[in-house]
Nucleic acid binder design. Sequence first.
DNA 1: TATGACCTTGGAGTGCACTCCAGGCAAGCC
DNA 2: GGCTTGCCTGGAGTGCACTCCAAGGTCATA
Lengths: 151, 151
Amino acid sequence: MTVMQTTPAATERATPADICSAPPRRHPRPDGQDRYTISEVVAFTGLTAHTLRWYERIGLMPHVDRSHTGQRRYSNRDLDWLDFVTKLRLTGMPVADMVRYAELVRQGDQTFAERRHLLESTRRDVLNRIAELHDTLGVLDRKISFYAAEA
Amino acid sequence: MTVMQTTPAATERATPADICSAPPRRHPRPDGQDRYTISEVVAFTGLTAHTLRWYERIGLMPHVDRSHTGQRRYSNRDLDWLDFVTKLRLTGMPVADMVRYAELVRQGDQTFAERRHLLESTRRDVLNRIAELHDTLGVLDRKISFYAAEA
DNA sequence: TATGACCTTGGAGTGCACTCCAGGCAAGCC
DNA sequence: GGCTTGCCTGGAGTGCACTCCAAGGTCATA
């Protein structure tokens, strides 16, 4: 199934100089398909196969379908979930909390209120972090313009 | 520079519900003093004594003065440095990179250009992270308003 | 049909950033 | 003098989030 030119695991160790440039590029999901192998999902999400299996083990993935020989076949719904999880990870939310959220989803509609609370508190975290980063940006700009003036 | 109200190490383990509320409150630096004990610095910065000693061990702190009995006495300059380091940490910069920066500072003025490059790339990282977080905010808002509509 | 890329598992290993421990010194107070 | 509190050190331990390994089954293609 091809594993085109992403940066499969080239995200290994980025020096500060690298980091800025390119976020791990992901491939578009082909339309009209709903059963992806793990390596396709690696290409779409930028996660490693190890991490995908691990997510499943710890209960962060809803049950993934299997082929008749036991190989994983991810659906578009699974990919949507992974996209969401990846976003949550960016906020710095611990994996344990995401597992908690996944459990709530499994429990069905009566957990809507709790899920909303969880997301709302995450939202506040994100706003705080953005504010902190803006603050840091100010500090960096002052230092940089100092160095620029001296150079 | 101001470091106002924050609690010492009350940041232990915050559940998602807690996190939002208060950032660890720190104590203001008293004026007209320039030799602080490690426990005072703990109160000012919110870092633990362990972490302060560890930062020194790995070369992230410039040499800290000692009392005649060998106890650490931090200066206001040291506190400023710790504030800066703490800001860099918030950006997600790895400790090893901050140690690199500290080394450049120790090497003196001829490293201005390199320091500026390092900070500029950090600045780009921060901008990227802010953009990612805004993106995540959009996702969260959509989910939250979905749950709000259903509830 | 055989080669090689791909997939499976449980469990062990890794790297980062702390975090703690044991054993000991020094100062203040009753 | 005895007690408490605070500080010191090197080295070991912890928790998180992966990351890898060994041993073996599966699949596409030459």
